[in-house]
């Protein structure tokens, strides 16, 4: 359960302040599948970062699983982020000097899990995503689709309650793009909340809940209809 109440965020860019989020109210239920669309610079990414606890609102409240995140200190926010939120980025963001397996392991390394345990868990998730044969490859030896799968494995490793995807297919060809989307939707059906930022209308319309941001103002495009 994620709840945003009157969240505002303004960036000082040059002389005119840019309203990235303007009194945003949003409630996300566990297992929801949302897409966020809007022109560039409208505040899509800001919303994602806000929910991902990478950014702080200027005003307003943000609850994740009933925890008032706006009053947490940075270290507590990092902990919450580690345990509840999985990020997927347009440009994958794998560490180039680490193998696929080691990249997947990073969140467990940050949480001080012993090595053999993290190996085991990471291998399992790579198998689940069908790329365990690439475990020992460096990112430069992998294709775009494979890179994004490694990134998804890393995002899922900590069993987050919400997956935040920022243009996850932006750097992929259409075939591996749709494979990645199908993969994400599969995990959503298994119960993980999925929130995806995109400017691809076709992709955005796949989500039962469609949000639109224009100049920092959030609106719901359609009421959600029954998911069958």
């Amino acid at each position: 359960m994620i709840l945003l109440k009157d969240v505002c965020k303004t960036y000082e860019l040059g002389e005119t302040p840019l309203k990235a989020l303007d009194h945003v109210n949003l409630s996300i239920n566990p297992g929801d599948y949302l897409s966020v669309m809007g022109p560039s610079g409208s505040g899509k990414s800001t919303l994602l970062n806000m929910i991902g606890l990478l950014d702080r609102p200027d005003s307003g409240e943000l609850y994740i699983n009933d925890i008032a995140t706006h009053s947490l200190i940075e270290e507590e926010r990092a902990k919450l982020r580690q345990n509840n939120i999985g990020f997927i980025f347009q440009s994958f963001h794998l560490i180039p000097r680490l193998t696929a397996l080691e990249n997947v392991e990073v969140p467990l390394m940050l949480s001080k899990t012993p090595k053999h345990e993290r190996r085991e868990q990471s291998m399992k998730i790579l198998e689940q995503l069908g790329i365990s044969s690439r475990a020992d490859h460096l990112p430069k030896q992998l294709s775009g689709g494979q890179l994004q799968r490694v990134a998804i494995a890393r995002a899922l490793l900590m069993k987050p309650s919400i997956l935040l995807a920022d243009e996850p297919t932006g750097n992929l060809d259409s075939r591996s793009g749709s494979e990645v989307i199908e993969l994400l939707e599969k995990f959503n059906q298994e119960g993980i909340t999925l929130m995806m930022v995109t400017h691809d209308v076709q992709l955005g319309s796949r989500a039962p809940r469609k949000l639109q941001i224009i100049d920092g103002k959030l609106s719901e495009v359609e009421k959600h209809h029954a998911f069958s």
């Binding site: 990478l54 990092a78 580690q82 345990n83 990020f87 990073v106 969140p107 940050l110 890393r154 900590m158």
Partner: peptide, 8 residues
Amino acid sequence: LLKALGAT
């Protein structure tokens, strides 16, 4: 990235 993955 490390911070997004929960590094303090």
